[in-house]
């Protein structure tokens, strides 16, 4: 299990950037898959939808429902595209790790879910927090925005600061933990299957069960991430908080 990552470090003089090539590869694959699904589904758009267009519209309405349950559509409409992209990106990313999880070349793990990498999930979570802060200041004014840190009592200020970081951390780590744990267990089961004939027979049922469960988890986590994103956004941009 304890495999290395194919890392590449770019030296840029004053500082250096380290890329995990596996993560980058999987991110690109995820993006391409999501783009292809969405692109192919939205060819031949018709007023009377058929086939894939129905599916896409269902996703749009689903995300619209998530946003509407948190804020009014006039405020939340601008986050619609962010929400759809997030939910599809994360769902596809979560599922990508399932089929070939554990492709190892030269003792380096190449194929995995990009969301099984805490850097990726925490980056997405931070992006959400930054967006929430940005829109909070832009739509409420900086005075009101910073005022909310002292509401309802001024001694709540430290807690409010902690809350900001706690939200970001939990948002990212929840996703990472679920997917990473799933992949570790899948990897262990795969190792068991590869150990002997008895191991292979014994591993079939648990592997199938865990893969099914991981598919479920993958969708659920994508939904939760999007839902919490909208909750945090509405918390910042809505006037009545």
């Amino acid at each position: 299990m304890n495999h290395g990552s194919p890392e590449l470090t770019l030296d840029l003089g004053a500082f250096s950037l380290t890329f995990n090539l596996s993560t980058v590869l999987m991110l690109v694959i995820t993006a391409v898959v999501v783009f292809l699904i969405a692109f192919i589904a939205t060819r031949n758009l018709k007023l009377k939808p058929t086939g894939m267009q129905n599916f896409m519209e269902w996703i749009m309405d689903f995300v619209k429902g998530i946003i509407k349950s948190n804020m009014d559509w006039k405020t939340g409409g601008r986050f619609h595209i962010l929400g759809i992209t997030l939910i599809m990106f994360i769902a596809v990313a979560n599922l990508l790790g399932l089929p070939f999880s554990g492709i190892i070349i030269n003792d380096q793990l190449w194929w995995k879910s990009p969301t099984a990498d805490p850097t990726v999930t925490l980056t997405l979570a931070s992006m959400v927090t930054v967006l929430a802060t940005f829109y909070g200041i832009r739509m409420q004014g900086s005075k009101h925005y910073f005022g909310t840190f002292f509401q309802p009592m001024s001694f709540m200020f430290p807690l409010k600061i902690i809350e900001e970081f706690a939200n970001t951390l939990t948002l990212g780590l929840r996703l990472y933990g679920n997917i990473y744990a799933g992949e570790i267990l899948l990897g262990l089961l795969a190792g068991l299957a590869g150990s002997s004939v008895f191991g292979f027979v014994g591993a079939i049922i648990p592997t199938m069960a865990w893969q099914g469960f991981s598919i479920f988890i993958g969708f659920i986590q994508a939904f939760i991430f999007t839902m919490l994103t909208m909750v945090y956004l509405s918390h910042k941009v809505s006037a009545d908080h």
Binding site: T18, N20, A38, A41, Q53, M60, H80, I81, L124
Partner: peptide, 29 residues
């Protein structure tokens, strides 16, 4: 700290969002 991954994630996600908005969500909406 994998700074490169952070940048890669952000760039890939934002490009994806932009492309989807232009080619998929926009027309669909």
């Amino acid at each position: 700290f994998n700074g490169g991954d952070v940048i890669a994630t952000l760039v890939i996600f934002l490009i994806l969002m932009f492309l989807l908005k232009k080619f998929a969500w926009g027309p669909l909406m």
